[in-house]
Design a protein around this nucleic acid. Sequence first.
DNA 1: AAAGATTGATGTGTCAATCTTA
DNA 2: TAAGATTGACACATCAATCTTT
Lengths: 156, 156
Amino acid sequence: MSDDMWLSDREQRTWRAFLDMQRLLFGHINRQVQREFGLSGADFEILVNLSESETGRMRAFELSRATQWEKSRMSHQLSRMAARGLVRKEATTDPRYSDIVLTEQGRAAIVAAAPRSVDVVRETFLDPIGDARLDLFREACDAVSAVLDENETDCR
Amino acid sequence: MSDDMWLSDREQRTWRAFLDMQRLLFGHINRQVQREFGLSGADFEILVNLSESETGRMRAFELSRATQWEKSRMSHQLSRMAARGLVRKEATTDPRYSDIVLTEQGRAAIVAAAPRSVDVVRETFLDPIGDARLDLFREACDAVSAVLDENETDCR
DNA sequence: AAAGATTGATGTGTCAATCTTA
DNA sequence: TAAGATTGACACATCAATCTTT
């Protein structure tokens, strides 16, 4: 492969730094929460959303909107979680929609796991980035997302 | 859930911005390379490493070291790629090790996909971050990785 | 036709167990 | 025992196809 097919040194270093960080960070967080609380990142995200709603009850498509997940991914995930007793599916008056209800077991799991998860995010992500870099880092992330959002809406 | 279990607004915004960026970016890149060249991100990473070696031939554990993947993940991935003709496994004089060889088809795939992939990384990641933020962004990533590296070595 | 949801197939990633050879 | 590698089981993610109701 000729060299000009690739990124410059500075570009390359930034891209690699981001990829490595990404891999280490999510590896660490997922391992931590899985080992200590038996929850995957996907479980965690669903439980957080449900626990933040007043009633502990949301429609599946509300969860899809909140998480930005595809509907099939949501369906599979909720089936697995229901099988494990973390959530319960309930029929509603409108047969098109299903209600997803946080079970006592699900609530207990998220209450147990949340404080530790917050600590991990602080210790391994927010603190290392540091106060001085925090806003600029966020702005960089937002700039990337903005380009991709534009791109997505173009495709539709 | 009481509020003090969670992050502050500023922390929360940064963490969410990072998560959203992450999801959009890899979703976009993977879709792009998959659709245009039939390669997953995992395929791509293996092919890049092999194509960068002089001989187009590496031992599996060298690939594991280069990518930082677990050996079982590497084994599964290489089996799938071998089944698709992108790489070939060859026995060596030392029966403990296996050689992974880039096939002509594998080389053709990475040569075809690389330029476009570089463009996508530039357009959707490096350019939006921008020259002024690039070094600081990289330093932030490195700072996060440093904490996690320390943490990992502590565990061993 | 469109929206909400499910399913099956396939590819991906992790863990634990196993095998072989040094 | 330890390193390199494989395997099987399971969870996760995506795509295409399907179903029901509006």
